[in-house]
């Protein structure tokens, strides 16, 4: 079961919801993956102790000038224009290289070898309440977030039955697509303002493009206008939870507290949210997925449902 928490707009409360959802189902030993690798911050709420670390690299070409004949084949086939062949010289632009390996494979003189270029780091370890936590950290100034997110997801998604909560980056570009890809459900966090609505529409377009079931959490409920609610009703998007705009909530989060820890009355609401997600994703006909415990909510969850 993989739940991706996403949004078009930044700052809507993805991390707030992802961390409280994880704490609400902590008996199931969920894994939280902070995929917002450019600015990961879920660890501040969940306080993991990292005991595993791994560097993320991509292989970039290194040209042996003695063997290179300057034929230019590498420059012709590079989709990213990361290698140019001019005046019998071959130049590599490491920051443009996606590490696909085409140049190395296709060099007729076998003049290209690969050398690793570090993009960032993966870190994992136990966090609060039996939650397992992992995050990717992109190096500062590094444009290529996708390989870090991809390796983070491959590194930690250990077994089929795992309950995985993905804290996605904002926006709708490649890092978001990579974060939500393969999820069983996408939880879209928004706020009831024209800005929230504008970016929610973009995020919904993305989930539909990827054919992923989605539902909405409205954060800071009570401000703004009715645009988001009208839009959800008209486009068949379920509103699964509303978190009111309250000063006490803002203050608790500003102190680094999670919502359910500061206000335990939210625990049953987040458990209910999890149950709703389970039933929404199980209603979906998906022949590819092998039947596992996900088809039946664990009895412990049922017992706790209000």
């Amino acid at each position: 079961m993989i739940i991706a928490v996403a949004s078009g707009k930044g700052g809507t409360g993805k991390t707030t919801v992802a961390t409280s959802l994880a704490l609400a189902i902590s008996e199931l030993s969920p894994i939280v993956l902070d995929c917002d690798v450019e600015a990961p911050n879920a660890h501040i709420f969940l306080q993991p102790e990292f005991d595993k670390r791994r560097e993320v690299n991509i292989p970039i070409p290194k040209v042996d000038e003695k063997r290179c004949t300057g034929c230019g084949h590498c420059a012709e086939i590079c989709q990213y224009h990361a290698i140019v062949s001019v005046a019998d010289k071959v130049l590599v632009f490491p920051q443009l290289c996606h590490g696909c390996g085409s140049c190395t494979l296709q060099c007729p003189e076998k003049a290209i070898t690969e050398t690793p270029r570090p993009l960032g780091m993966l870190e994992a370890g136990p966090a609060k309440s039996g939650i397992r936590f992992a995050r990717g950290v992109l190096n500062v100034g590094e444009p290529m977030a996708v390989p870090v997110i991809r390796e983070l997801k491959q590194w930690q998604l250990v077994h089929d039955g795992a309950k995985v909560i993905i804290d996605a980056p904002p926006g709708t570009s490649c890092p978001v697509v990579e974060s939500v890809r393969g999820a069983d459900f996408v939880l879209l966090i928004t706020e009831p303002t024209p800005f929230g609505l504008h970016d929610l529409r973009l995020a919904v377009t993305l989930t539909r493009e990827l054919d992923l079931p989605a539902g909405v959490v409205i954060n800071r409920d009570g401000v703004g206008d009715t645009g988001v609610i009208d839009y959800c009703q008209n486009s068949g998007l379920p509103i699964l939870m509303r978190i009111p705009l309250e000063r006490r909530i803002g203050e608790a989060i500003s102190r680094g507290q999670t919502l359910v820890e500061a206000f335990p009355e939210y625990l049953p609401r987040f458990r209910q949210l999890y149950d709703q997600i389970l039933s929404s994703s199980k209603n979906r006909a998906d022949p590819v997925q092998t039947p596992n415990t996900e088809t039946q909510p664990p009895s412990s969850i049922k017992a706790r449902s209000p």
Partner: peptide, 18 residues
């Protein structure tokens, strides 16, 4: 050819001129 490139427009345009 690099006018609408996703990235690497500079090197691609330079390669073209060379």
């Amino acid at each position: 050819p690099a006018a609408d490139a996703m990235g690497g427009a500079g090197p691609q345009a330079a390669q073209f001129l060379a």
